[in-house]
């Protein structure tokens, strides 16, 4: 155990470095948006991605893994490609893609910047993600097919906002064919947008089946967060910075974590890829 002066020095150094990295997050998210929206041709379009992004968008580069899984479930086939991509990403990064690459998460990060009073969503509501995954993505298509009103694409706000709303506005303002959102989406899209303003990442916390799946691997992934007791000054910054309601004082690599790395700006929690030295290098 080090003395307090050394601890504070290490902590400051770590915190400074991590603050610089976390400040880049918005730019990394923007750069990934350019990847998801780059028309790269048919060969890539038939490959599922690892983020939540509607594949109906004409600019979408990859296919939405959740949409693919739901469609395959309706066909009673196992989606090897989609599950394979997700398992690789989950094993290597866990839910890091949620915090740094997901365009729908990015949208919610931007709406959360609107300065209004925010409400906290209780952690137990996170189990809703698994209900959506098992219910709307697997069981509903499997037993009732794609025409069921609860088929995931019919109730997905990502499709409603990224594609439906955009096409509707284009149809009204240009010569493009007029399209309208279905009744369900007329309710879902405004409710979701309002929720995204008054809370932080409501879709990710309560409903996202993809985030739920990736978060299951947070405890095992190669990339993980590590608590360094030698650098902890008990400043509580880690808990104060976490918007996802993770009990950072107990564990960091939990199902609620989206790995935005905000908690690492306290200086005592460090991101780590793979194994390595358990002690802080001086």
């Amino acid at each position: 155990m080090r003395d307090m002066a050394t601890t504070i020095e290490i902590n400051r150094k770590n915190a400074r470095r991590m603050r610089r990295l976390v400040r880049l997050r918005i730019w990394v998210q923007t750069a990934f948006l350019a990847v998801w929206l780059a028309p790269m041709g048919k060969a890539v379009q038939s490959m599922p991605s690892c983020v939540f992004h509607c594949y109906a968008c004409p600019l979408a580069s990859f296919a939405c893994p959740i949409g693919v899984i739901a469609n395959f479930s309706a066909w009673h086939a196992f989606p090897l490609l989609a599950v394979g991509v997700l398992v690789i990403v989950a094993g290597l990064l866990g839910s890091l893609v949620c915090g740094w690459a997901c365009p729908f998460g990015f949208l919610q990060d931007l709406t959360a910047k609107i300065p209004v009073r925010k409400f906290r969503i209780p952690n137990w509501m996170g189990y809703g993600r698994y209900l959506v995954l098992i219910g709307l993505v697997i069981l509903v298509p499997y037993f009732w097919g794609k025409d069921h009103p609860l088929f995931i694409c019919r109730v997905c706000p990502a499709g409603g906002i990224e594609v439906g709303l955009t096409r509707m506005i284009l149809g009204l303002t240009t010569d493009a064919p007029e399209v309208w959102l279905g009744t369900a989406k007329w309710i879902i899209v405004p409710v979701f947008l309002l929720a995204a303003v008054i809370t932080y990442r409501p879709w990710c916390k309560i409903f996202c089946p993809l985030g739920g799946f990736l978060a299951l691997f947070n405890r095992f992934s190669v990339f993980h967060l590590r608590f360094d007791p030698d650098a902890c000054t008990e400043c509580n910054t880690c808990r104060s910075r976490c918007e996802m309601g993770v009990h950072v004082e107990q564990a960091v690599n939990t199902k609620e974590c989206i790995r935005c790395l905000e908690c690492t700006t306290c200086g005592a929690i460090k991101p780590q890829f793979g194994g390595g030295n358990t002690r802080t290098k001086e």
Partner: peptide, 25 residues
């Protein structure tokens, strides 16, 4: 409190399973 340090073996095995699934796909 535990440091939550862990070796990367489990994550790599999971990724390998993903790679097998993709190859199968």
């Amino acid at each position: 409190r535990g440091s939550e340090y862990r070796p990367s073996r489990t994550g790599l095995v999971i990724s390998l399973i993903g790679l097998v699934l993709i190859t199968g796909g």
